[in-house]
């Protein structure tokens, strides 16, 4: 009878048998008292090697780690001819220009222009021949603004304590109105990723707005678990940075493609 040595029995204990498959070791241990004794001793020793208790780190530990290192990291440069980050294989990003164009039609250049002037009083957009690209940029700024506010709302929601009617709900109602507008035009522009995200956002905003008694813990849990607000927060962040990059690209090369300088 071939006995098993200490090393083989230790491998067996950790489920790493190689020289013989686990079944034959098990069979041998049933038949051989010597090996069974050795194995029992190994098991007893290993069972007594305590796993030290790990100190508890709170649920927000990861966020703390991130806050600690975020400032020292530099963003990876976006690809030159940017192919937008894709959520699902096969989904095509058609470019924010289409979205911007649709938003222009619906929201109107006046509204966007006013907002742009408000944000950048020294650089009013010239309402002239070279202004198309500028207006597109304005719309993107407005859309970026919307995503920014939505992101902040979702972050607040994530850390919210149960409360009666509060500022979060008021903000949600405000965002809901503009979100409907954006969602419609984005759908027309044929951008499923952005449209889906805004759709998801709208459902969350409706839930948050429609709680007359305020947000209970149960409601907050439901939002997080069933409506996946964490996933939505991530989507919104990605989209926001996408929009931001596009705005920056337009800022860097205002009208170079047309060979016209403003």
């Amino acid at each position: 009878m071939n006995h098993f040595n200490e090393e083989e029995l230790i491998d067996y204990h950790y489920g790493e048998s190689v020289s013989a498959d686990a079944d034959s070791v098990a069979r041998h241990l049933r038949e051989c008292a010597d090996c069974a004794r050795s194995y029992a001793a190994i098991e007893r020793d290993l069972a007594e090697i305590a796993v030290p208790a790990t100190p508890v780190r709170g649920e927000d530990y990861g966020q703390q780690v991130w806050d600690g290192i975020r400032g020292s990291l530099r963003a990876y440069p976006a690809p030159e001819r940017r192919r937008w980050f894709q959520f699902a294989p096969g989904s095509q990003w058609k470019g924010l220009a289409a979205v911007a164009a649709c938003l222009l039609v619906i929201a109107g250049a006046f509204f966007a222009g006013r907002l742009w002037e408000h944000r950048n009083p020294q650089h009013p957009v010239a309402n002239n021949a070279a202004g198309d690209q500028g207006r597109e940029k304005v719309v993107l700024v407005v859309l970026g603004d919307h995503l920014d506010r939505s992101e902040r709302l979702l972050v607040e929601l994530k850390h919210a304590e149960p409360s009666t009617e509060g500022p979060i709900q008021a903000e949600a109602r405000e965002l809901l109105a503009s979100n409907r507008l954006y969602r419609e035009s984005v759908k027309q522009a044929g951008d499923p990723t952005l449209a889906n995200a805004l759709d998801h956002l709208e459902r969350v905003l409706i839930e948050v707005s429609n709680e007359p008694a305020g947000l209970s813990q149960a409601k907050l849990d439901e939002l997080q678990k069933e409506m996946n607000t964490d996933g939505l927060l991530f989507e919104v962040r990605v989209l926001r940075s996408r929009v931001q990059d596009d705005v920056e690209q337009r800022e860097n090369k205002p009208a170079a493609t047309k060979g016209v300088s403003i």
């Binding site: 780190r57 966020q63 975020r70 940017r82 937008w84 980050f85 991530f234 990605v238 940075s241």
Partner: peptide, 29 residues
């Protein structure tokens, strides 16, 4: 929809630094 780790990595490499935060949160413990 929760983005998976690979998707987040691609987002980070495409310039979205903050996306990395989700990976940190997910794996810190």
């Amino acid at each position: 929809m929760e983005a998976n780790d690979d998707q987040i990595v691609r987002a980070v490499l495409a310039g979205d630094k903050d996306a990395y935060g989700a990976l940190v949160v997910r794996h810190s413990q």
